[in-house]
Nucleic acid binder design. Structure first.
Lengths: 220, 220
DNA sequence: CAGTGTGAAGTTGTTCACAGCA
DNA sequence: TGCTGTGAACAACTTCACACTG
């Protein structure tokens, strides 16, 4: 049997919401909370209570009626779900504005990602460290990926060179790509790609604004 | 009649995809293309062809069988849809790593957003310019919002102060908030909020990686 | 035919309704 | 009574099927 078994099947929106839960739960924990209920989470986060229950059920925790979930246990379960402990390492290519900001960003470790090095083609940018993370010339990428067994590549290059950068990265052994450019990247099917476009979110914002003013106009 | 009419009702995923279309269409245009078909777009972007057709239909353009869409016309329609021309102005609060990167980001104008000024509480950061955009102390916010009629606020503060920052901004006249913190912000219902969490995307990436290794293990 | 455009079917995600429990 | 947990109804989005056109 060659058929690939589908193992988990967690709804994508659920995964998206997990970091939000984690953030809130940690905040609660910081305030000394011991238990938390789904309705409580829902009202704080403006989610639907049933949805919270369903989402949390994917982590495997089980709560108690009238009481809710044990906070520490729940935090652990969510962290486990997100794989915070696995502590994956990544390389980042394209040390421009966005790339630099990501290198400086302290929060990735909260979700178990550590950026080990940055790379660029511009010799002006290489040879330094940013927040303790070294920036190398792209020439070093291949060698370092192999030696350090890095499998995740973050792409923050200009869009024009995004595809060729990813092609190279994959050739050099990268298995998962986090793409911050607006380019729709082509990869072999076994490569994991996560696109993160600030533009999509901006488009949503602008559209909401447009819609609201249209409604206001219509109701005059 | 006080009932609020629902005017448009465009699917959110469609709005999200629009900037991707726009980017690809402009690229095509740069190469001298004159027409483009939905299947062509779909194969380049790895989308479903019917979905492309449906998405584009929301812009109001109409294509021709056997030929496709007029490229220039289509780009115009998509830009119009996204409101690129309306050219909205925004203030940004929290000139840290991410805030600085956003101030430096050249691409927002592609979608009609212009960041006019940055604000921070830290006097170390104020009084300078970043990429030509002045950074003021938060004390100046209220006055400038009123004088310049700014309605969009971008929040890149530390999470701990995100809620209070937004409360202030709204008190001072901001109508739409683009929130880059992981905090679920509470606002009056007439305020527009767009959350953009890098963590959600990272969670998605990590989850895909986890799932893939689970599948591989299961198929051994 | 190779494309547009659309109504209908299928799939995925959300919300409701309620059984079970302490 | 206030919560968990779940099966069923509902809503949103995607994909399919096909009629239509130059």
């Amino acid at each position: 049997m060659t058929k690939t078994k589908k193992i988990i099947g967690i709804p994508e929106p659920t995964v998206r919401r997990m970091p939000t839960y984690l953030h809130y739960l940690k905040e609660l924990n910081g305030k000394g909370g011991k238990t938390v209920s789904a309705p409580q989470i829902a009202s704080a986060l403006r989610f639907d209570a049933t949805q919270v229950t369903k989402d949390l059920s994917y982590t495997g925790v089980t709560g108690r009626p009238r009481i809710g979930y044990n906070l520490a246990e729940l935090i652990n379960a969510v962290e486990d779900f997100l794989g915070v402990n696995r502590n994956k390492e990544a390389f980042l290519v394209g040390v421009g504005n966005l790339g630099t900001a990501l290198l400086r960003y302290p929060g990735f470790s909260d979700l178990g990602l550590k950026i080990i090095a940055g790379f660029d083609t511009d010799y002006e940018k290489t040879g330094k460290e940013i927040e303790g993370i070294p920036v190398f010339h792209i020439d070093k990428f291949r060698d370092l990926v192999e030696r350090l067994h890095i499998t995740i590549g973050i792409v923050t290059t200009p869009p024009e060179v995004a595809q060729q950068t990813v092609d190279l990265m994959i050739g050099w052994g990268i298995k998962a790509v986090w793409n911050f450019t607006p380019v729709a990247i082509r990869t072999p099917k076994h490569i994991i790609v996560q696109n993160t476009s600030i533009y999509s979110n901006l488009a949503l914002l602008m559209n909401k604004i447009k819609q609201q003013s249209a409604e206001k106009r219509a109701n005059d």
